[in-house]
Amino acid sequence: MLMTLSYLLLAGLTNGSVYGLIALSLSVIYSASRVINFAQGEFVMLGAMSAVLFLVTLALPWPVALVAVIVVSVVVALGLDHGIYRPLVRRKAEPLTIMIGTLAGAIVIYGSAFLIWGPEPRFVPPVLSLAPIRLGFLISNAQQLSLIVLFFGFLALTWFILYRTRFGLSVRATGVDPKVALLMGIRSERIVQFTFIYSAAMSGIAGMMIGPLLGAHVSMGILITVKGFMAAILGGLGSPFAAAAGGLAIGMLEALMAGYGTSLYAEPAIFVLILMVLIVRPYGLLGDYEAERR
C-alpha cells in the first residue's frame, strides 16, 4: 500500500520534474517579455532527437554530446529570437500576436525536425545507468534520479540568477516595466534574448535526459508544451517558482490518477482541477497579481 504510493510519487516526481522545467522555462520567458513561448516543448524534442544524433550516429562521449545538445538548443533559440520575437516586438506587436508567432516557430521547428528525422520514434541511449538503485524499498535508476536532481538544480540556479545578481535584478525590472527599464539603460531585447537562450538550454538538457525514459519522436514537443503550460497556469505563470511547483503537482496528480484510477481519466481530471483552481485563484495557486498587466 505504502509501497505503491511511494512508487507512484517517485514516478510523479520524475514526470513532474520535466513539466516543472518546462513551466519554469515558460515562466522565465514570460516574466521578461509577457509572451508565452509555444515553441518551448520543441526544445525538449530537439534535445532528445539531437541526443540520438550525437550519441548514436556520431558516437560522441556524453559530455561532448551534452554540450552539442546545448549548442543546438541555443542556436535554435537565437533563431526564434531574431526570426520571430524581435521583428514582431520592433513592429510593436501585442504579446498575443508574438505568442502566435512562437506557435508558428514551433511548427517550423517541428516540420524541420520531421524532414531530418522522419516520423519514427527513436531510442535515446541513457547517459547514466538504468541499473536499479535501491532507496530503502524503492527501486529507481540513475537516469530517473538525474532528472529530479536536474530540476532542483535548475530551480536553484534560476533563483540565484534572478534574486542574487544584478543581472537578475534587470530581468525582474524589465518584466515589470520594460519602458522604464529602458530609461534606466536596460535594453529589454537583450534580457528577453537571455531568457530564450537560458530556457532553451534547460529544455534541451531535459530532453536529452528524459529521452531514454519516454522515447523520442519529432511530434513530442507540442504535448510537452501543453503540459508545461498547464503546470505554469496551475502554479502561477507570473512566478518561476510557482510555475515549477505547478509542474510537480501535475506530475504527481497524473501518476496518482494512473495508479489508483485509470490513466484514461488522468488528463480530463487534471483539466477540471485546473479550471476549478483558476475560478478561485485566477493567477494560479501560488501566483501573484503581477501577471495582470504589463
Binding site: 540568477i161 545578481t165 544584478r166 543581472f167 535584478l169 534587470s170 525582474r172 525590472a173 515589470v176 516595466d177 522604464v180 527599464a181 534606466m184 539603460g185 536596460i186 537571455f194 501573484d288 503581477e290
Partner: peptide
Amino acid sequence: FRGLSVLENVQMGMHPAFPDGL
C-alpha cells in the same frame, strides 16, 4: 518596479554605472 524592494528600485537607477553582464 513593483515586486522589487525599495533598495532594488534605487539600485536600478545606477544601471549605467554598474554594468550587469550575466
